[in-house]
């Protein structure tokens, strides 16, 4: 089944200087563009769309093949053209769509054309909001455009303000589930892995519709083809005035299902080196913490099974086990 995906971008300065004395931020106007996390969001959306279309094509080929004996097993490409499909009683292949949405000024159009060149189906810019509009306001405007999408993918945080709050507000506006801080996505199963506080990770199986935010590091946006770049110059960028970008419908909320939550792995503690003026023994004691008052060890006398349960429980308390 084809899917409708929306990707939220923000125009930011990717190079800037901060005056150490006054805190004044000077942006390099030549560096305006999407944050790395926003680019990763589009890449994930394109991969999901590609996977959905490939699965759709394979499914159609499977349904068409028995009538003429031609199919993937015969080494023929599984793709079926819309015309061929229609002729065999199969609905024309409807490709998945990826719409990139941005709240920003007209200067963002060049950035949106980069998204079109990379493979996005459409681009919409919401005009009329000030640069410092608060996250709930931005999310409200975005919701008016992206509502109805099967999946909304955002960058985890923008390079400028970086509060990482718009995706959460957007999910709330849409009344759909959310998975924030996603690191990887299995585009075939829909299972995502996200980062939790304290270095923990968890895997979620997503329903639809849902809002996810992705980190910028794991994937890079594919390089646009030359033909894509040239074609994108003539593609229109839809412009919606902010005041009229009202929310259309509220989808039924579908919370993600926790598949697995990884163990808590506390970060290593940083120990300052002891003073060089101490004796070797004193330095060893300082490093090891020996002879320092601490919580006394707890001694329990239990049967083996109970003792094992006690140990597991303690490890879980400390966070070493899920």
């Amino acid at each position: 089944m084809s899917v409708a995906l929306a990707v939220c971008w923000k125009l930011v300065a990717r190079r800037f200087e901060v005056d150490a004395l006054t805190g004044t931020v000077t942006v390099d106007r030549h560096s305006l563009g999407p944050s790395p996390a926003d680019e990763a969001a589009l890449e994930w959306a394109l991969r999901i769309a590609d996977a959905a279309d490939a699965a759709d094509a394979a499914d159609r080929a499977h349904r068409v093949a028995p009538s003429d004996g031609v199919g993937p097993a015969d080494g023929v490409s599984p793709s079926v053209s819309p015309v061929e499909g229609a002729g065999r009683g199969v609905a024309p292949l409807e490709r998945s769509t990826v719409t990139v949405v941005c709240v920003g000024p007209a200067a963002a159009d060049a950035m949106l054309r980069e998204a079109l060149a990379s493979g996005a189906s459409a681009a919409v810019r919401i005009d009329g909001l000030p640069d410092d509009a608060p996250s709930p306001v931005v999310a409200h405007q975005l919701a008016g455009v992206v509502d109805g999408s099967h999946l909304v993918v955002c960058g985890n945080a923008s390079l400028d303000r970086g509060s990482a709050s718009v995706p959460a507000f957007l999910a709330a506006e849409l009344g759909v589930g959310q998975a924030l801080g996603v690191v990887t996505i299995d585009v075939t199963t829909g299972v995502v892995e996200r980062r939790l506080d304290g270095g923990r990770r968890e895997r979620l199986r997503l329903g639809s519709p849902v809002v996810i935010s992705v980190e910028g590091g794991p994937v890079r946006l594919r390089r646009a083809s030359l033909a894509g770049v040239l074609a994108a110059r003539d593609q229109p960028v839809g412009v919606v005035v902010a005041a009229s970008a009202a929310r259309l419908t509220v989808s039924e909320r579908v919370d993600p299902v926790v598949v697995r939550r990884g163990p808590y792995r506390p970060r290593p503690r940083v120990l300052s080196p002891p003073s060089a003026e101490l004796t070797p023994l004193e330095r060893i004691l300082a490093l090891t913490g020996a002879l320092v008052d601490r919580s006394p060890p707890r001694l329990v006398h239990l049967e083996p099974e109970e003792a094992a349960a006690e140990i597991v429980g303690q490890l879980r308390t400390w966070g070493y086990l899920p």
Binding site: R222, R223, A224, S225, L226, A227, G228, V229
Partner: peptide, 16 residues
């Protein structure tokens, strides 16, 4: 020849 990919062939370069 440019360093932009050609999706039609899967090549990492394309010509203009």
């Amino acid at each position: 020849v440019t360093d932009r990919p050609d999706p039609a062939t899967g090549a990492s370069t394309s010509a203009l």
